[in-house]
Design a protein around this nucleic acid. Structure first.
Lengths: 228, 228
DNA sequence: GCGCTTTGTGAATCCTAGTTCACTTCTTGG
DNA sequence: CCAAGAAGTGAACTAGGATTCACAAAGCGC
């Protein structure tokens, strides 16, 4: 035996791994998925292409790890909010505004991780986290329904899904690199705040307990369209 | 001169074009984007690969036309509903349920056109139609705000976006080929109806005029998280 | 049937990354 | 300093499809 992997090497290895991940993340957060190429990652990390494969078995796994790290942090934030002592209304409102604001801090990255077209394998991880986010919302909605703070006549999971879809979509326009509005720094923080508040407000309104009458709505002819 | 393009030929050409489009659509609606390959389209349409390029300049343009045709029909349906004489509440409810139900009729196709990862060029067309749909919703929301049927303190475009995102997302789970629930034929139409109604209900609730008090909500510590 | 033009064909080509691997360089223990 | 085992390298290899193109077939008017 003539080799042992010193702490020194161990550290170097760990450092490389970290740099590769950082490079990957940085590329996505600047140029989105089109820039997310192994050769670019290698260049930015200061290693050779082949080296990347000593640390990650495939492009997909590398970027899934990037996505997971970032997304998990968001889930954690929501977890704290969802587990808080505030009223369900307050928690729902906080959760949505927190998510929207945080996403607006790093628009390009958020856009890539939320909406930009990407490899199916990565997209799948994206779905997993979207689901995890939805689960945090379910907790809040469930509490609210139990305490009577929210209407309880709908499945909490459906409600949470719609809410998540609502605030994500409300985010996509402003996030999209195509829309250069929503002033970059110096932060137009007023606009961001308003957007976040408005979206949160809508989400809260959707689950508010219903006033009196059950329904005035009846099916209409238009509702029963032909097939596609 | 020794050639003229008879009606006969003209018809044959038109027929080919139609068959190619039909083949393309059929493939997407069965296998989604992975199946949407030019060679497959050609095979199904009964022509050679090269022939497809006599009718469409590129894969993207072919499929964008497929998507446009299908999506435009949906926009038209919403257009009729939005332009109807019913109350804004009723129209919003009808619009959402109509969309959800129609999508559930051809799940695989709807999934591909709404959510499945696809070529960026196609994805862009998708966005355009999502926007067109949003515009129909804006009409309804705007009317409702003007007539006092809906709360008027928020930008109608933001409201519409959130609503569209909400019902689309509510749809994705049930549409996804991964979720083999939501019984295929014989139609579990009860489940579909409920889903559609529930989602529509939520959307309507979000824009209902607000009861008394303006807001009990105040920013919380959790709302101001660190950067990613 | 005969030139001429448009259409149809599908094998060959091109392209774009992701992935591999034979070889070089570095580290370690002796 | 040496031999052995790891880690690093980047040019070459692949793979999956889109796209092209030289050639064949079909339609047209005479």
């Amino acid at each position: 035996m003539a080799y042992r992997r010193t702490d020194n090497v161990e550290a170097h290895l760990a450092d490389n791994r970290k740099r590769i991940l950082a490079a990957a993340r940085s590329l996505v957060s600047e140029g989105g998925w089109p820039e997310a190429q192994i050769s670019h990652v290698a260049a930015v990390a200061g290693v050779a292409t082949g080296t990347v494969y000593r640390y990650f078995p495939s492009k997909a796994e590398l970027f899934v790890e990037v996505l997971s790290t970032v997304s998990q942090r968001e889930v954690d934030v929501l977890d704290v909010i969802a587990g808080g002592a505030e009223s369900p209304q307050q928690r729902l409102h906080d959760a949505v505004t927190a998510f929207v604001r945080r996403a607006m801090r790093n628009r390009r990255l958020a856009y890539a991780l939320i909406a930009e077209p990407c490899d199916p394998e990565i997209d799948q991880a994206r779905l997993r986290y979207r689901h995890a986010i939805s689960e945090q919302i379910v907790r809040i909605v469930g509490d609210g329904q139990a305490s009577g703070a929210f209407r309880a006549d709908l499945d909490a999971r459906v409600v949470a899904t719609v809410i998540v879809g609502g605030f994500m979509e409300g985010l996509i326009g402003p996030l999209s690199p195509l829309n250069a509005d929503f002033g970059s720094p110096p932060h137009h923080s007023g606009a961001v705040r308003t957007l976040a508040e408005d979206i949160a407000d809508l989400c809260c309104a959707a689950v508010a307990p219903r006033r009196g009458k059950v329904s005035l709505l009846v099916p209409t002819v238009a509702t029963r369209g032909r097939s596609r």
